[in-house]
Design a protein around this nucleic acid. Structure first.
Lengths: 226, 226
DNA sequence: GTCTATACTTAGATAGAC
DNA sequence: GTCTATCTAAGTATAGAC
C-alpha cells in the first residue's frame, strides 16, 4: 500500500527482488546443494529474470556469500547476546567453560538442526565453507577470516576461565572444540549409518547437551606431562 | 624391457596412462581444488588427451572418487595394522582408549600433514566429502558409507574399553571424536588466523598427540547425571 | 583395447536495448 | 531496474585411427 509494490512482471521492484532471490537461494541450496541449483532453475523458481542475480549480486558465488552473511550475522548476534548473559551471571571474567561453550554452540546448532536431521549435511554454513575452502574466490576466504573475529571474544572468555592453559594450548583446544561443533554440520549421515537408528537425531536439546559435554571435557582436561 | 613400454605419444600405454592421470589429479586437486582443476588443464599437465579421463574413469567425479579410493585404501590398511598391533599388546578386548584412537587418527593425520600446513585445507578427503555431500552423485555417498565399515572395528574396540557407556552414548562420543580429527582436515586456516603464529602447524607428532588427548578426554568423560 | 580429434550441451556471465 | 540475446568455458559424448 505504500505505492512501491508493483507485482507486474518486468516492473522495477528493487529490494523486493533482491530479498526474494536470497530467500529462494537459501532454500534451494539447502535442498539441492550449491551446484545442484542452476541459475536458470533458481531464477525460474523465484519468478525473476536470469540476469537479475548477476545484477543484484554479481556472481553465483557472491549470492552464496550473501546468503551466508545474512545467516551468520544473526547467529553471531545471538552468540554475543548469550555470552553477555553468561558473563552477567558470574563475577567479572569468571563465566564457566560450559556456559561459554553453550553460548558459542547453541545458536548455530539450533539453526542447523531446525531443518530436520537431513538438512545437517547441506547447511548453508557447510556449503559456504566447503566452497570457500575448495574452489571459491578470495572474497569467500576473507569473509571466513572476518567471521573469525567474532570468535575472539569467546577465546578471551575461555582464557579467563582456564588460566592454567598456555595460549597455544588454549587455542588448540578451542580449535578442536570447534571441530566437535562442526561434526554436527558435516557427518550426521555417517553417524546414522554406524548407529542403526539408536542415536536420536531429532532432539536438538539433547544433541546440544552432548556436544557441549564433549567439548567441555576436552577443554578442561588436565595438562599433559610433556 | 618387457616390450609393453612405449613412450611415444599416441601409442597405447594402458595402465600407465591411468596411473599418470590419477597421480596428476591427486596433486592438482590438492593444489587448486576440485573445480579449480579443469579437465583441459589436467590432461594438458599429464600430457594425455582430453578424452583419456573419460575413457579411463567415465567422469570427473568418478576420477575424484578413484583418487580418494586409492588413498583411503592405504590409510585404512594402516589403521587396521595399528589396531591389531595395539590389541596384540593388551589382554584380549582391553586395548586402551588412547591406543585405539591413535591407530584411528595417526594414518590420516600423517597423510594430511605431510603436504605441509597449507595442504590441510585441500586434502583429497575433504574435497571428496564436500563434493559427495553437496552435489556429487550417489556413488560418492555409497563410497563414504562403505568407508564407514572400516570404522566399526574401532567402535567395537572402544566399546570393550568403555563398557560403562551405552551404545548411543558411545556412538555419539565416537562421532564427536571424528569431528576432532576432521578439524585438522578442514579449518587449520582459521586456527592460524586466531593464533597469530603461536600454534606450530609443522610438528606432526605434536599435533597428533594433541588431537588424541582431546578426543580421549571426551570419550572418557564421566557419564552425565541425566 | 587405447587413444585422438572434434562436436555437443549446459550453464554462468555480460552487453545493450527498453 | 529489468530483459533478451549472446558469449565463453567446461564437462561430456562419439566416431574413427591405431
Amino acid at each position: 500500500m505504500t505505492g512501491t509494490a508493483d507485482p507486474r512482471p518486468g516492473s522495477p521492484r528493487g529490494e523486493e527482488t533482491r530479498t526474494l532471490i536470497l530467500d529462494t537461494a537459501e532454500r534451494m541450496f539447502v535442498e539441492r546443494g550449491y551446484s545442484g541449483v542452476t541459475m536458470r532453475a533458481l531464477t525460474a523458481e523465484a519468478g525473476v529474470n536470469l540476469a537479475a542475480v548477476n545484477y543484484h549480486f554479481g556472481t553465483k558465488d557472491a549470492l552464496l556469500l550473501e546468503v551466508f552473511r545474512r545467516g551468520s550475522l544473526a547467529i553471531n548476534r545471538e552468540r554475543a547476546r548469550l555470552l553477555r548473559e553468561a558473563e552477567a551471571l558470574a563475577a567479572p571474567g569468571t563465566a564457566p567453560v560450559r556456559d561459554i561453550l553453550r553460548a558459542l554452540f547453541e545458536p548455530p546448532l539450533r539453526a542447523t538442526l531446525a531443518g530436520g536431521e537431513a538438512s545437517g549435511g547441506r547447511s548453508i554454513y557447510m556449503q559456504f565453507v566447503a566452497r570457500a575452502a575448495l574452489d571459491g574466490p578470495a572474497e569467500m576466504r576473507t569473509m571466513l577470516e572476518r567471521d573469525v573475529r567474532h570468535l575472539e571474544r569467546f577465546v578471551a572468555a575461555l582464557a579467563n576461565a582456564l588460566p592454567a592453559l598456555s595460549r597455544p594450548e588454549l587455542l588448540w583446544r578451542f580449535h578442536f572444540a570447534m571441530g566437535v561443533l562442526h561434526s554436527i554440520y558435516h557427518d550426521l549421515k555417517r553417524l546414522d549409518a554406524l548407529a542403526d537408528g539408536v542415536c536420536d537425531m531429532s532432539d536438538a536439546d539433547a544433541i546440544i547437551g552432548r556436544v557441549v559435554d564433549f567439548a567441555v571435557a576436552g577443554l578442561e582436561q588436565p595438562l599433559p606431562l610433556g
